[in-house]
Every structure is written in C-alpha cells, then in structure tokens.
Amino acid sequence: MGNVYFWIIYAVVIGSAIIALEATSLLWAAVSFVVLLSEIALVYFGLNMPVLGGVQLAIYAGGVTILVLFAIMMIGESYKKPEGKAVKAIVLSLLLLILGTFFSFLSAIDTLPFKTFSTEVLGTVFVEKYSFFTIVLGFIVSALLYMANAIITKKREAK
C-alpha cells in the first residue's frame, strides 16, 4: 500500500472531484476542478514524468479551465438541488468502485519497480514511432474548426 503522501493526494483528488460536482456555486466548482487537475499533474510529477505533468497543467489547468470559465460566464448556472436520480447514481458508481477494486485485488497484476525515463528517450520514441498521430490530431482539429465556424455563423445568422 502507499505511503502517507499518496493517501493525502488521494484524499485531495477525490475530495476536490466531489466538491467540483457538489459545490453550490459554479465558480467554486470550477476552482475545485482546477485543483483536481493540478493534483493529477502532481501525481505525474511524483511519478517522474515532468513532461506529462507539464502538458497536463498546460492543456487542462490552462486551456480547458479557461474554456470552462468562458462558458460559465456566457451561461451561468442557477444551482438546483438534484432530485431523485442521485440514489441510482451513487449505487451504480459505488458498485463500479467496489467491483473494480475487488477485481484489482483478485487480479494477477504484478507491481513492478518504478522506472524513470529520460526526456530524450521520450522524445526519441515520440518522434520515431508516434509522430504520425499528430497529423491525425491535426485533421481532427481542422474538421472541428470548420464545423464550429459553420455552426457559429449559422447561429449568428439565425438571430
């Protein structure tokens, strides 16, 4: 089992996740969401993956959160107490958690020692093996931009 730092991080991650969902004010929820994502970045740093942690911080805590904040400013949210459905959701998610944990203990998965990969290795493998997929991501981005442009212009014209 993990050391005390792990469990502290566990508590912060899950706690901030729950707060992000349950907080009454949307702004606090967003802040909590940023905390969650940064904590996950912290886990990456803790695993000696500074690049991944940096990317996580940059894209999530930077990009996505700003998008979300932007949306919040446009939309706003009047918080209403959720009704009825919460019981089903709690039961299902708890079942998922219990089953997953149970299975992971039943499983023959082995704990290997943690390794550290240097940034050079990472960069080399990325460039030599995986560079093709950046092109693919580029296509996704271009298609999304075109469609978003079409839809936003349509919206403007619809007014």
């Binding site: 566990y10 991650v13 899950i14 996740a17 729950i18 992000a20 969902l21 959720p82 459905k85 919460a86 089903k88 959701a89 709690i90 299902l92 998610s93 708890l94 998922l96 958690l97 997953g100 944990t101 992971s104």
Partner: peptide, 13 residues
C-alpha cells in the same frame, strides 16, 4: 477507480 466512480456518479446525477 475512485476517480472513475466519482466521474460516473457526477455524470449520472
């Protein structure tokens, strides 16, 4: 798994 469960909980509730 906990994070997954919290996410599922949030999505459903």
């Amino acid at each position: 798994f906990s994070l997954l469960a919290v996410g599922v909980y949030g999505l459903l509730s």
